[in-house]
């Protein structure tokens, strides 16, 4: 089941890589920051999933809206001559790191609990 999203990721990558012409260099920064925002939504979703409060509406909306907002913020920063780009990178970077750490902690805890209960660790 998990293979379907993974396949989608690869297919999306290949389709765009082959079909879409490269974006102008000044857009590259915005695309990069949108990717960071998407990654943040992804990691956040993983954490929520483990904490059993995952909601697909929040995930989907968070993914797309954060992506757009991050790119927009960077764009406005460029227009104002302020490196808001950096602020976005730092903020998102810290969040991704926090969420990754939290996810790891949850996974380890779950594994330890499973072992203590005398059951083999299962991954849902």
């Amino acid at each position: 089941m998990i293979a379907i999203p993974f396949a989608a990721l690869v297919m999306g990558f290949l389709a765009v890589y082959v079909l879409v012409p490269p974006v102008p260099p000044r857009w590259a920064d915005y695309v990069a920051i949108a990717i960071i925002a998407g990654l943040d939504a992804f990691v956040g979703a993983a954490r929520n999933w483990l904490e059993r409060r995952f909601d697909e509406a929040i995930f989907i909306s968070g993914f797309f809206v954060n992506m757009a907002l991050a790119a927009l913020l960077a764009f406005f920063g460029d227009k104002l001559g302020v490196d808001l780009y950096l602020a976005v990178v730092v903020a998102l970077g810290i969040r991704i790191f926090n969420n990754l750490g939290r996810t790891r902690a949850l996974l380890v805890t779950a594994r330890l609990e499973a072992r203590r209960a005398g059951m083999p660790a299962s991954s849902d």
């Binding site: 999203p5 993974f6 989608a8 990721l9 690869v10 297919m11 999306g12 990558f13 290949l14 389709a15 765009v16 890589y17 879409v20 490269p22 974006v23 590259a28 695309v31 990069a32 949108a34 990717i35 998407g38 990654l39 939504a41 992804f42 995930f59 989907i60 993914f63 797309f64």
Partner: peptide, 14 residues
């Protein structure tokens, strides 16, 4: 989400 993320990675790498 994966399709979109993959696509954006594609743009960027390209």
């Amino acid at each position: 989400v994966c399709i979109v993320l993959g696509g954006m990675l594609g743009i960027q790498v390209r």
